[in-house]
Write a protein that binds this DNA or RNA. Sequence first.
DNA 1: AGGCTACATTCAACACTGTTGAATGACCAG
DNA 2: CTGGTCATTCAACAGTGTTGAATGTAGCCT
Lengths: 182, 182
Amino acid sequence: MIEGRMETRTAILRAARTLFLERGYAGASVRSVASAAGVDAALPIHYFGTKQALFLEALPSMPDYQPLLEGDPDDLGERFVRYVLEEDGHLRPLYLTLLRASDAGAVGEQLRDLHETTFVAPLESRLAGQDAELRARLAAAVVGGLMYALWVVGDDQLLAKGEDDIIRRYGALLQHLIDDRL
Amino acid sequence: MIEGRMETRTAILRAARTLFLERGYAGASVRSVASAAGVDAALPIHYFGTKQALFLEALPSMPDYQPLLEGDPDDLGERFVRYVLEEDGHLRPLYLTLLRASDAGAVGEQLRDLHETTFVAPLESRLAGQDAELRARLAAAVVGGLMYALWVVGDDQLLAKGEDDIIRRYGALLQHLIDDRL
DNA sequence: AGGCTACATTCAACACTGTTGAATGACCAG
DNA sequence: CTGGTCATTCAACAGTGTTGAATGTAGCCT
């Protein structure tokens, strides 16, 4: 058995992170989280107040795009596309879980916040030319669209066209936005 | 009271369509659908077998993009962007509801199917140049990205930049893909 | 040591969910 | 009038998030 306030809290958080990412928000019950944490069924709510609050606190943080942004600015578009295609399995479940739970108000805010702080803002600071903010936001939409097509819709026939062509074409598209060539 | 097999079925379907679009899949309970239809609580399941089956049957069909595709091919990009921005309120709730319920296998398939038949396929048939299928799929991702940014993330600051600039820039981006100029 | 407080944990219960199967009712053919 | 078909009702099931009271246990003060 687990003892002590902090140990219990973190055990619950760890179990919640795993289960939410594995089964989604609705699919992971509070009781299943509790039992995976080896803890009484009422403790998750007791510690976090609400399933939604537990969900928000349990989610892992977004990967850091900083390394992506720092390289050669002429390859930025390709690097972003490549990153989505070759991602190591951390971003995808987080993205899908957040997406699908985004009708709950607080989750929507969290998603907006992550979008803003981990994507739009750092990208905008790298953009020269006019309408930098607008272009950063549109670039975020373009990248989001790729994740949408691949992960939400599950367009396998797009993937089957070959990653190289996707990287080339979609990367070039993104690069046009980044370079203000439109 | 409602009588007869068909009347009951369609009353349930109508109520389900409204409630699912209004409150989402999880937010609309089977009982609430039944009571909105003025019908016993057990009837929706009795007629459709499962909440998910009712959901799939109740969803309205996707709007028809045919008119969008038929105009001047040089404006296709702008027209698609304009359509998303000025849409009359039918597409958005349908898109969001499907998205958020897409972890259920059958809903995911439905989403993939709609994406394919109402978007990729008709667009592909309009594309000249090489890699038409790839470009059609990427174009679908671009448009999906705009809906994602505006509706899922809720990027109001993007909207605040002015619809005209969005239409111009994002439309031009899409047009590049359509025209095979990359 | 004994009694006390503070607090982590357990338990039982609430209203609600999707789903099921048996009971009820109405209508229509013979 | 009888029997049968079938739409509808009802009660119940296990599971959900959430709550509040009961239980236990650790440590501090006199």
